[in-house]
Design a protein around this nucleic acid. Structure first.
Lengths: 237, 237
DNA sequence: GTGAAAAAGCGTAGGGGTTGCACAGTTTCG
DNA sequence: CGAAACTGTGCAACCCCTACGCTTTTTCAC
């Protein structure tokens, strides 16, 4: 009955709570939950870079190497931390369009709270439990459109990519209070070169100072484009 | 006449060819061009991780520290390598829609040739010359839509985000010849847990094996959605 | 119970990587 | 012809991840 899952991607088994059975030897001083929780703590406080086996080990009063009794590699740790940190999706409202908006908003909020999630490298299609909860939620909402499953997957990809992109842009523009100062300095440097270098459209964008305003509008804008596009598809089929 | 650009983001000045003037002392043994070219070489051969000051220095027959005479930090190097590697955009056809498709295709091709570009962390809005060439090209194409500059920027963000996302998905699915084997193993592990864990929609997706087929179709699919969405907007205004 | 097996944790070690500082050599300006 | 400025180098510190071997602890089997 002991399943033999051979070579699974790092973190897959652990994220689903499948631990290697142990029979003899001292009880582990730590638990995976503890380790993962510490990782999240560090991420929240000091960013993605701060999530290191070394630091976690030190914080838990253990040597770095002891970590490798629990986790096969740093990558595995990251996968676990990531899945735990994304948490569960919210309840979505009725109707695919409101649902999509709510889903996107929730992710934007999540990324705003834990910007370091954007630094987690994407290794493959989502396979961990919480990530799949999000996928499941949106997919069931989309099933009301009457589109094929394949189309729904395409829409999902579209939406999740959009959120991620928006969030990562919002982060870098929003953070650092000196952003406006910096931006102005960059503009002073850039504009003459744009003019001389043959970037007419960009020059006018810069001169109209279109680069700065309303990021919230942008979220809504792009999302509206995507949803309208999906609507067109629905009408077509 | 010597401009004093104070604190500019790393790589900005250098990417535009503004070098700190030198008046005395030995001539540099290396040039920035050489260093950047070596970086690209390593990236192409062994991926993003392989781009390190240490390796480049060794390859050029210099100590690691000598690099810091040319580049203020690794981050600066990465910015330069990135801009050089993205190169120039292609000539775009007439009409905003064909232009957008060509632009997207070109980027997909670029990311297929240099997948490691997807690993370059995005630090901020594009400011380096080649990156801005791409922006400029798409922006001028979009100006034919009659939308506002602000709307055009939103569309651009939408498109570039979409490409990036698609490319990063395509990479991880396409690479590694054992991907199908791996995928099957993952499926065997995952499906029972999806059934038990309350993921009905995903379960059916997995059982229908929707997860595997045509990635090329997906590119076209999402792009069509976005362009349709933009079309709706144009009609509305 | 008691001994052996298994597993945990530690120490040591090594291999990468980025960066700072003091030093010696080279070029060019005054 | 100095002296200033800038070069590359060596040394060193500091992170990070990971492998190996050893000691200690626990538990199973007898």
């Amino acid at each position: 009955m002991t399943e033999d899952h051979g070579e699974l991607p790092p973190g897959l088994a652990l994220s689903w709570g499948v631990l290697p059975v142990q029979r003899r030897g001292p009880k582990p001083a730590l638990s995976i939950e503890q380790i993962v929780a510490t990782g999240i703590e560090f991420g929240d406080r000091d960013g993605f870079e701060a999530i290191s086996l070394q630091r976690i080990a030190a914080h838990l009063g253990v040597t770095t190497n002891a970590m490798y009794r629990y986790v096969r590699s740093k990558e595995e740790l990251i996968v676990l931390v990531n899945d735990k940190a994304v948490g569960l999706p919210p309840e979505l409202p009725e109707g695919w369009r409101p649902a999509a908006i709510a889903w996107v908003d929730a992710q934007v909020k999540l990324y705003a709270e834990r910007p370091w999630l954007l630094d987690v490298p994407i290794r493959g299609a989502p396979v961990t439990p919480n990530q799949l909860r999000w996928v499941e939620a949106m997919l069931t909402a989309l099933s009301a459109t009457g589109l094929s499953q394949h189309d729904n997957l395409g829409c999902l990809l579209l939406l999740s990519g959009y959120v991620r992109n928006y969030a990562s842009l919002a982060r870098q523009l929003g953070s650092s209070a000196d952003a406006p100062v910096q931006a102005e300095q960059v503009g002073r440097f850039l504009v003459p070169r744009l003019i001389e270098g043959g970037y007419p459209t960009l020059t006018s964008v810069y001169l109209n100072q279109e680069y700065e305003d309303g990021l919230d509008d942008d979220l809504e804008f792009g999302l509206a484009r995507i949803l309208d596009g999906i609507d067109v598809l629905i009408a077509k089929r």
